[in-house]
């Protein structure tokens, strides 16, 4: 009889433990998705929970392009997610979450599909010489010692015939509403060598990111956004 009682107590304890863990995870999940993305509590347990959730999903769905260590790949224009340089909006958790939800040029109507970098060379909007001049000008925004006359010609094309200013801005700071990169922060998606920049201008760029809404659950998407935000901001809670 005593043995049976002990077994029953053990079973109850195990059940209570399982339920306790479930309850705790539900509490964290609710905190994760129930708060506004940009107002998540500074709770280390919450960030840790999100990170655990995100790491599994990241390894399965994102690492193939973005790399196991978030390092990206300049050959394919995949951003280094650790740098905190965001094409769209301000890099808030909500901004990152939106990109993950609906993607970039993903075919989702809510995706970030505003604009492309035109192939100025292939479509002969600029001559090879003009492209070299503009590339030199772009290089000069982040590198010292560029040839001044070439840079001056490139700047004139940038502000004139090339119409680069129209998207990238007269001051080359880009446009976060359209996903147009800043050219003077040294964070070139496709590499920052003269050859890389020349290729970007000549061939154009049209990076893509799939839409994950309906594929991943909302908590996982929020967790990914939080993890990436933490990684980019060096959040010690991450």
């Amino acid at each position: 009889m005593k043995r049976m009682l002990a077994l029953a107590c053990c079973a109850l304890l195990v059940a209570a433990l399982v339920d306790g863990v479930t309850w705790h995870r539900n509490r964290l999940r609710t905190a994760l998705v129930g708060n506004y993305a940009d107002a998540l509590p500074a709770d280390p347990a919450l960030h840790q929970y999100a990170k655990q959730l995100a790491l599994t999903a990241y390894a399965k769905n994102c690492a193939g392009c973005h790399g196991a260590a978030l390092q990206g790949d300049t050959r394919r224009g995949v951003p280094d997610l650790r740098r905190g340089v965001w094409l769209y909006d301000f890099g808030r958790v909500s901004d990152i979450e939106r990109t993950i939800l609906y993607g970039i040029r993903s075919g989702n109507a809510k995706g970030r599909n505003t604009t492309d970098m035109p192939a100025m060379g292939i479509l002969h909007r600029l001559t090879p010489g003009e492209i070299s001049d503009v590339a030199a000008y772009v290089m000069s925004l982040t590198h010292q010692g560029m040839d001044s006359p070439t840079v001056a010609r490139g700047a004139a094309i940038y502000q004139g015939k090339g119409e680069c200013f129209d998207c990238h801005g007269a001051d080359a700071t880009g446009n976060i509403d359209w996903g147009v990169p800043s050219l003077n922060d040294g964070a070139h998606l496709y590499g920052d060598s003269m050859a890389d920049i020349t290729t970007s201008i000549h061939d154009g760029r049209h990076g893509m990111c799939p839409a994950w809404v309906g594929v991943l659950d909302p908590a996982t998407i929020r967790a990914l956004a939080l993890m990436l935000h933490d990684a980019a901001t060096g959040n010690p809670k991450a």
């Binding site: 040029r105 993903s106 075919g107 192939a119 479509l123 154009g204 760029r205 049209h206 893509m208």
Partner: peptide, 10 residues
């Protein structure tokens, strides 16, 4: 359906 095409490069 067109997403891939629209994002392609010449």
């Amino acid at each position: 359906v067109d997403a891939e095409v629209l994002a392609s490069q010449p």
